[in-house]
């Protein structure tokens, strides 16, 4: 452990923050290893394992063939024998070829065994669109994983949370789906919000799984979001300072969902906007609204506005994709509507 460093003195990308968190856990725990496609010398297609191969070599940073069922299943086998694998599934959209290992095995073994077998593994995967990668490489899908019991699901919006959540995920005795949005990674080859590069302490620290952050305090309206969309929400909240007081809640985890944080904020503001890049129907936004309806519908002083991905596959052409994506303009319009 190095001396405490002021978080403000060093700014790194989310990708660097993730790989640094993994490296620090690997140094202190020989049971941690990384496996996946292009995680070795390439450093992960989105940089999540940058520099790890140089430090740890091919024995612990394992490039795999394109056999997602094979290597995710192997991660499960290693985990049930007490290792702590971090397995990268390059794009979340690829889960279709290997979902049996994920939802029928990884997520269920602890329950099926009556608590006798633990599966301490992390699946990290890239999510999200905005760069014309179309229908099979742009989805978020966190609600799909969250719908099935037995997996924790996290999706950081910034470098600080990414490192702390990765360390928490590796140390967790449960399977954790770690979803990084390509747009928050701070990649040199993709347009990015400046928030994708930010202050990150050099030492190890954890961000608790299941605890939302109030990313921007406010009193007029609650805006609940997660992952990349949080960056848009913060831009809007700052822009509206002086006219509308916006409280932005960054969920950080979808499972467990910090329902208390949502209820507390909505109790204060009485107005709710949900911004979610995952599909609108049967998903996170509906679950958030149900949380309020179950507890006390009278908390809401106006109908909820949802800025979510419409129920369409992700289109290719830029003009079509941005018609569907959550944007700052749509968030502003939603805030204006609920606070009118």
């Amino acid at each position: 452990m190095t001396a405490t460093v002021d978080a403000g003195t060093r700014r790194v990308t989310t990708a660097k923050a993730i790989s640094e968190g993994i490296a620090q856990e690997m140094r202190s725990n020989p049971d941690v290893f990384v496996m996946g496609e292009d995680v070795g010398p390439y450093g992960g297609i989105f940089g999540s394992t940058g520099g790890l191969f140089e430090e740890f070599g091919s024995a612990r940073i394992v490039d795999t063939p394109i056999s997602e069922t094979g290597f995710i299943g192997a991660g499960i086998g290693a985990a049930v024998e007490g290792m702590r694998p971090v397995v990268e599934l390059m794009f979340v959209d690829f889960f279709g070829v290997c979902f049996d290992q994920i939802y029928n095995h990884m997520a269920k073994i602890h329950y099926e065994s009556g608590g006798n077998v633990k599966v301490p593994m992390v699946i990290m995967t890239a999510v999200g669109g905005g760069y014309s990668d179309a229908a099979q490489h742009s989805q978020c899908l966190w609600a799909t994983f969250a719908h099935m019991p037995g997996m924790k699901v996290v999706a950081p919006s910034n470098p600080y949370d990414a490192k702390g959540l990765m360390i928490s995920a590796i140390r967790d005795d449960n399977p954790v789906i770690f979803m990084f949005h390509k747009g928050v990674m701070g990649l040199p080859w993709m347009a990015k919000n400046p928030r994708s590069i930010g202050p990150v302490p050099e030492e190890e620290y954890t961000v608790p799984i299941g605890k939302a952050a109030i990313a921007h305090e406010g009193s007029d309206v609650t805006v609940v979001s997660v992952s990349m969309s949080v960056q848009h929400c913060l831009d809007v909240a700052e822009e509206l300072e002086g006219t509308t007081s916006v409280e932005v809640i960054d969920l950080r985890s979808i499972v467990p969902l910090d329902r208390e944080a949502i209820l507390t904020s909505v109790a204060k503001t009485g107005k709710l906007v949900i911004v979610d890049e995952d599909y609108k129907s049967f998903g996170l936004s509906g679950e958030i609204i149900a949380t309020i309806a179950d507890k006390d519908p009278s908390l809401l002083k106006a109908p909820v506005e949802r800025v979510c991905y419409p129920d369409i596959p992700v289109p290719y052409a830029r003009v079509l994709e941005y018609e569907a994506l959550p944007t700052r303009d749509k968030i502003k319009a939603a805030i204006a509507k609920v606070t009118a």
Binding site: A74, I76, G77, E81, P85, Q101
Partner: peptide, 8 residues
């Protein structure tokens, strides 16, 4: 595949 991982 799980057995492969146990062997790993």
């Amino acid at each position: 595949p799980v057995a492969v991982g146990q062997a790993m």
